[in-house]
Nucleic acid binder design. Structure first.
Lengths: 203, 203
DNA sequence: GACATTTTGTACCGCTCGGTTACGAAAGCT
DNA sequence: AGCTTTCGTAACCGAGCGGTACAAAATGTC
């Protein structure tokens, strides 16, 4: 592959990881199909032949960029869920979601959703890759809640799988909202509402 | 416009409303940019010149199709919210969402989201139209909850705007989930979880 | 029945885009 | 100097969108 660093020949004029992040931003903003090769190469600061020589194709470029995005996203999810109680874990997850979806250092919303929920039949694989990423996140949440269920750390009568799905769905809805301009504060206010579902007794 | 029925000349071989519904399904399944003119005309059962003569452009076709979709969607939302209490209204809204998003007579998920959250710069208007439709739905929910707040029909300390946003975000997340294959039963199980946020005292 | 009007089907054009390759120049190592 | 690799420019192909020309077909009107 192109991961090893060849010591011979003309060296690369760009950092592979850095241009992947630039590519991710373009996909994030315009979606897979809405991201033109011209926009991609322009944002990445490289020419088309360099892109094809390095990444192979638009689809492979997307997968590499998305994989990188997933790394940091997954790290954030795990960090948020690393709280002593289910309530604290869910709250941290939702609050960090709301913050991340409205951060200023990258496009609004979430690449897993902006990337392309619906695609032309030729690009159906893109939707599948994105859906798999979201499902993996949900699995991580569910695992945390499964532990909470074993520890008796969930309100009585709560199905932990349904709760994980609820939390993920809410986060996805926040992503949709954030992409259309809903503010961080407004999202956090809705987190407050959502957390009531986790309180066993009244507020 | 093309809405009046001319009594002279060769009559139309297709029903305008019917082909709009077919077009909506294609946009729903593949998104605006992923829907090729060939796929559209093929599904609509008409030829390209007929499409352009009747609807003007791909964008205008989408707006007409989306407007029709919105009509029935809005009617469903209003019908669901027409319940005596805020709790019953929200429950009906979420349950009918979960059902509608997984119905068998049309694509999975929701056109407002599948249509194109992110688009190329040329098609930015599409994303805006879709976002406006979602915002209109949220406004309807908020209006219902605003009434509930005036009637003292909400749990104490709940911001009705944040609650409306919470409900809409959850419904949007359900749409994302449904489009990637989550079953109706699984969505309804998460509705059960969400409704806990509306119960003032313990379960 | 002749005529005007409108739609239909087929074909075509211009343009852009995605995907890809060719080729010579440039930059490094041995 | 020679080898290797990358860079930048340029071009090519097929497909899609947008739009149109033209003749055939179908209807109402005179």
């Amino acid at each position: 592959m192109s991961t090893e660093t060849p010591t011979i020949g003309r060296p690369r004029a760009f950092d592979e990881e850095a241009v992947l992040d630039r590519a991710a931003e373009v996909f994030w903003r315009h979606g897979y199909e809405g991201a033109s090769m011209t926009a991609l190469t322009s944002a990445m600061g490289i020419n088309r032949p360099s892109l094809y020589a390095t990444f192979g194709s638009k689809e492979q470029l997307f997968e590499r960029a998305f994989a990188r995005y997933r790394e940091t996203q997954l790290a954030n999810v795990r960090a948020a869920l690393d709280r002593p109680t289910a309530y604290a874990a869910i709250e941290a997850f939702l609050r960090s979601s709301a913050d991340g979806l409205t951060a200023g250092d990258h496009p609004l919303g979430c690449l897993s959703i902006q990337g392309g929920l619906a695609c032309s039949p030729e690009n159906a694989r893109i939707s599948e890759v994105l859906a798999a990423g979201r499902a993996a996140n949900e699995a991580v949440v569910e695992e945390r809640l499964s532990r909470a269920a074993r520890e008796g750390d969930l309100p009585p009568g709560v199905d932990h799988r349904a709760l994980a799905r609820f939390v993920m769905a809410l986060s996805e809805g926040f992503a949709v909202h954030a992409a259309s301009g809903t503010s961080r504060e407004d999202l956090q206010a809705s987190v407050n509402v959502a957390l009531r579902a986790l309180v066993p007794s009244q507020s």
